[in-house]
Simulated scan of single mutants.
Amino acid sequence: MDVEIIKHSGERTNFSIDKLKSSLRKSGAEEALVNEISNNVRDELYQGISTREIYNRAFALLKKEKKGYASKYKLKKAIYELGPTGFPFEKFIAALLFYSGYNVKTGQFLQGKCVLHEVDVVARKNDQIIVVECKFHSDEGRNCNVKIPLYIHSRYRDILNNYNVKNEVEKPTQGWVVTNTRFSKDALQYGKCAGLYLLSWDYPKDNGIKDRIDRLGLYPITASTLLSQREKQFLLSRDIVLCKQLINDDFYLDHLGISENRQARILEEIKILCKHN
């Protein structure tokens, strides 16, 4: 019998054990564990269960077996935990670009032809200069609609028009719009037509935020299953947005008053996360 489940958006669909298995495999779990957890979750389903409840059950079972797997499994939720202001998300995107070989600066002011613009991230690599605007949504299931790239494109054009007037060499070569959720169909169509580079959780295909995190081993500090919310917020306030950064600056754990035994377990977990797939 098909079991109807409810997504974050309110949409109803049938439960797919194959999709659940696929998400578990991406955590690095072995096939035997994937099958065991999937079967346990399936046996506890009921009509109208939410995807959040399915996720919570699978996460709890995975965490019980191995915290490193659970941390990877909760990656999408960890990105939402970078909120609510969106500023840590900007720092996180800047870090992704930095470890991809870019020279990055955040919170930059660029003069447009008409007005001055505050830009989230300016990144440079070779002859490429990209201007990045981040749109963070704290509500799961909320897509980034066409109004966002429309608005950002108008700001980007104003910046370009100022460089056209001055004829300066350091003219931006590309405008980016980055979101932690997904783009609507119209937003993707407009971005492609306008020449904007759009980056979301799963777009472009095989090169979205999730793919880049997995490929580079650049997991947000919020992916840890051992740090408390208060501890994560403390680290984010010190610009520690990546697990990789905490390995290099583990003295912050002393500042938090964390015992040596717990520090060792936290560092062990995030070192597993930081390993490239």
Rank of each mutant, 00 (worst) to 15 (best):
V3I: 15
S9N: 13
R12N: 01
T13K: 10
T13S: 07
K21Y: 05
S22I: 07
A29Q: 02
E31D: 12
E36A: 09
N40T: 15
R42E: 13
S50A: 11
I54G: 02
Y55H: 09
A58Q: 03
K74H: 05
L75E: 07
K77S: 12
T85I: 04
F87D: 13
F89S: 05
E90C: 02
L97R: 01
F98K: 14
G101F: 03
Y102P: 00
K105L: 13
K113E: 12
N126G: 05
Q128N: 14
Q128P: 02
H137V: 10
R142H: 09
N145F: 13
K147E: 15
P149L: 08
R157K: 14
R157A: 11
I159R: 00
Y163I: 03
N164S: 10
N164E: 11
P172N: 05
W176Y: 15
S184N: 03
C193I: 15
A194N: 01
A194F: 08
L196F: 08
L198H: 04
L198Y: 07
D202Y: 10
R212G: 02
R212C: 09
I213A: 04
Y219T: 03
T222H: 04
A223E: 03
S228R: 07
F234V: 05
I247A: 01
N248V: 13
D249K: 15
D250L: 12
Y252L: 05
L253A: 08
H255C: 09
G257N: 03
I258S: 05
I270L: 10
C274R: 00
K275R: 12
